[in-house]
Design a protein around this nucleic acid. Sequence first.
RNA 1: CGGGGCAUAGCGCAGUUUGGUAGCGCACUUGGUUCGGGACCAAGGGGUCGCAGGUUCAAAUCCUGCUGCUCCGACCA
Length: 574
Amino acid sequence: MLASRLYSPTLREIPAEAVVISHKYMLKAGMIRKIVGGIYVYLPLAWRTLQKIEAIIREEINKTGAQEIQMPIIHPAEIWQQTGRWAVYGDEMFRLQDRHGRQYCLAPTHEEMITTLVHMDTSSYKQLPVSLYQIQNKYRDELRPRFGLMRGREFIMKDGYTFDKDWEGLDHQYQLMYDAYTRIFTRCGLHFRPVLADSGAIGGSTTHEFEALADSGEADVAYCSHCSFAANTEAVVPNTLPCSIHNEKEKELVATPGQHTIEMVCEYLHAPVAQSVKAVVYKLDDTVVLAMVRGDHEVNEVRLQNLYGAATVGMASDEDLARCGLTAGYISPIGLKRTKDFDIVVDASVMEMQDACCGGNQKDMHYIHVNPARDFGDVRVETIRMITADDVCPECGAPIVIKKGIEVGQVFKLGTKYSEALGCTYLDQNGKSQPMVMGCYGIGVSRTMAAAIEQSHDDDGIIWPAAIAPYEAVIVPANNKDEAVMAAARSLYDSFEEKSDEVVLDDRNERAGIKFKDADLIGYPVRVTIGKKWQESGNVEIRIRRTGETIEVPLGECKDKVMEILADLHAKNL
RNA sequence: CGGGGCAUAGCGCAGUUUGGUAGCGCACUUGGUUCGGGACCAAGGGGUCGCAGGUUCAAAUCCUGCUGCUCCGACCA
């Protein structure tokens, strides 16, 4: 490719709207342009990278036995109504009508469509498993599109679905996909962790998210400093917080006038926050739920929602509190009774505590010397808190580290939720009708590109992993007016034959400085400069973008050296 | 949905307080000099000042109402 023909309008100044680095550099390097909020054009450089990511995905997913298809983006409302998600998806779904007034949506995901499809042509256990996937645009009318490609309203996704006759089959497919995803993100040069996640309101059981670790991520990832354990902080893990305190005193009601926040109470009682129990009152559909966690912990609302199978989660109103006899600021389970529309759920770590303080269930009073296991009475005990940096690894006991992650993929055991709703059944060996057991597997392709930039850049621009760089090398003649330099650059460019589609010749009639700046910004892994050094010594300069290392070689050896460097970068997934 | 901010040339911005011929830098075009880390000189092209009303002799500027964008938060396979 000749740089003079490359449609990548680079900018000197970054549009003010961009805040994260991937967005800034993709705009500046002429990779993307915004049309409206959350909707972008992919220009040639971005499109090449996306196609490289897709090629890696296809190669690895095909190895699992899955086959690629292409489903419609416009879906009829009926199939979404059958699963109830026409209503559940709400404003996040782009909806439209045809000229007859029939309702459609732009697909945010394809469970309904694929299940309808497989139902058409699959009826026997002999045909299972079925594993299909596609790569296409998805549409979600996000409340707040932001961060460029990281959260758009139109984005590229690879979505795959498996159908098995039983859970054992699903477990096998799931593992195949998990392994394939691990290979895909490794090959894309990402630093990532597969993390245990909460299955969310969608139903199903096991799920892992693939999180690219980056400060600009929106998810909190907790992972072990020693072993491979990693989880979304919303995931449910066994309680590992030990209690070193032993208390034999009976609980005692003490006056705490005006002390209605955890911090105030602990200060007043000279107790550490971790020795207090915090009450948070939620309204889950029609049930008021009193959630108790340690004073320094946070309630995991996703977990709470799943525990109660609730469609909505909100804080309880003042009326709700009054009706259930709760005094805001002084709440504890002591003396309260669970009813059909009022429940008490206590985090497992709270039940381990001894000599704690908690609300007195009357204004200006708190209990001290409380042993929840002894004093709380009839309560539901569950893990309902977020994982914290104080936790230790549930598998090896080493300290937990919490970092931000960008969710680039997710694998999910769906079960029979969609197959049952849409009648996607098969006949088993006994001629009995059974719902198929489904799994779904997604990769945010455009987000993966953005994540790669978030993880790999410097002040000058993008540092692409070689496997997904738009082009792998650029040849820069330092002076276009010098015919000998230009001829040498052209002959080097022509020598790349089998790699010719991966090399750019910067033949633009620009000064060397501009070419260097653009090369760093666009992030070609390797740059070759032919200029005065070559004229003086016959050597050209090879520079490796990632390390800044420069090597001088005779022009005749340059191509082989570049190929060697690229092969090395590819081999190391750099 | 709550709370801020913004809307003037492709990009970045000034001008709005105090109404009076629409500006600057970059980018773009032409000519010349320069040529290994975003050069310089000269001459150019490009804007119904987000939209719709209103006030006024006169509105980018004042008033009203919209719309869009954006940031923080809430939300989120």
